[in-house]
Amino acid sequence: MTMMQKVFGFEGRLRRRDYWLINIGFTVIIVVITLVSFAIFGDYEKGSGPTRVVQYVLYIPQLWIGIALALKRCHDRNKGGGWVVFFWLVPVVGWIWGFIELGFLDGTQGRNRYGKSPKGIGGETDSKLAEIFA
Rank of each mutant, 00 (worst) to 15 (best):
M1P: 04
M3C: 05
M4F: 08
Q5H: 15
F8E: 10
F8R: 15
F10Y: 13
F10I: 15
F10Q: 12
F10W: 15
E11A: 12
E11H: 14
G12C: 10
G12S: 11
G12N: 09
R13W: 02
L14N: 01
L14F: 07
R15A: 14
R16K: 13
R17Y: 03
R17D: 03
R17P: 05
R17S: 12
D18A: 11
D18I: 10
Y19H: 04
Y19M: 04
L21K: 09
I24S: 14
G25A: 11
F26S: 14
T27H: 08
V28H: 09
V28S: 12
V28P: 03
I29A: 13
V31S: 15
I33D: 01
I33E: 07
T34Y: 12
L35P: 07
V36Y: 00
S37A: 11
S37G: 09
F38M: 05
A39P: 03
I40G: 05
I40Q: 09
G42H: 11
D43H: 07
K46C: 06
K46P: 04
K46Y: 08
G47H: 06
G47E: 12
S48K: 08
S48L: 08
S48R: 09
G49A: 11
T51V: 03
T51R: 03
R52G: 06
V53Y: 13
V54H: 00
V57Y: 05
L58P: 02
L58W: 04
I60T: 08
P61F: 03
P61S: 07
Q62L: 11
W64S: 02
I65W: 02
I65A: 11
I65P: 03
I67W: 01
I67S: 06
I67G: 07
A68V: 03
A68D: 05
L69D: 01
L71Y: 00
K72S: 10
K72M: 10
C74Y: 04
H75Q: 07
H75I: 13
D76R: 00
D76S: 01
R77D: 04
G80Y: 08
G80C: 10
G80T: 15
G81V: 01
G81F: 00
G82S: 08
G82V: 15
G82Q: 04
V84F: 02
V84Y: 00
V85A: 15
F86A: 15
F86V: 07
F87L: 07
V90N: 11
P91K: 14
V92D: 09
V92A: 13
V93W: 14
W95L: 14
I96Q: 09
G98N: 01
F99P: 01
F99D: 08
F99Y: 12
F99E: 08
E101K: 00
G103V: 07
G103T: 05
G103I: 07
L105I: 10
D106C: 02
D106I: 02
G107Y: 02
Q109V: 14
Q109N: 12
G110F: 00
G110H: 04
R111L: 12
R111I: 03
N112P: 05
R113A: 07
R113I: 01
Y114W: 14
Y114G: 03
G115P: 04
G115N: 04
G115C: 10
K116D: 12
S117H: 00
S117A: 06
S117R: 00
P118K: 02
G120N: 01
I121F: 14
G123Y: 02
E124M: 07
T125V: 08
T125Y: 04
T125G: 13
T125Q: 14
S127F: 06
K128Q: 10
L129V: 08
E131Q: 06
E131Y: 00
I132E: 07
F133Q: 13
